[in-house]
Amino acid sequence: MKLDPRTKMVMVICLSCLALIYNTPGRLLLVLAITLVLLLIFRFDPSAVWGYLKPFLSLMLILFVIQCIFSPGGNVLLAVGPVPLVTDNGLLIGGSVVLRIIVVIAAAMLLTTFSSRDFILGLVQWKVPYEVAFMVFIALRFLPIFREEAINVITAIQLRGIELKKVPWGQKIAIYRQLFFPLIYGMMQKAQQLAVSMEARGFRAYPRRTYIRRLNFNLADYVVMLFFSAATLIFIFLQIT
């Protein structure tokens, strides 16, 4: 299905809003299912979402455990003496937090079904200043670059003959701590190089920008946008009341 990038952006916003407003695993699972179906419709392999989720697995696990332990109420499932450790309510809230992250990441994958040029064009046609649109795009672009950079460093370490899996935890933490600063600094250096390269190519040299192409909404775009916005507003209203 061919839709305007702006329509897809509205869909992502709606799905993310629903993920944030819902706090039960059942409803969040439903939003996740809708997101995966949309990814299929736009020819994005839903199984590829797993690859994007992997780096967040440890974060999700930590959040799940924290929510499980610190969410009050419900039946106690595990207790240490008089202190309740895990409750059924905690499990539900922990599960919801994890599902919320998965939905937001999966929904963001819809943004990859069109080109970055269209993304900027879409925002600019919505009267977002070009500088801001470009900044948002660069920020999005840097996330995978940061991930790639981290993977490169891990690969380079292993290629120096260091079996990270077999390294004791103390040494492993020391290695990662040692690498953290260079990794961040390397990224900042890349950002600086990008800024110089943009300036060198005349970024913001003229006050008015022109575009060869323009994005146009068609009937399907209006229908989908209206449907998603209305449905989201209704669901939010129902959830609040």
Partner: peptide
């Protein structure tokens, strides 16, 4: 290259392997 100094970079594999 992923270390903080040139000397560390050369010695990294030797120290941590």
């Amino acid at each position: 290259l992923f270390c903080s100094t040139v000397a560390e970079e050369i010695g990294f594999g030797l120290t941590n392997r």
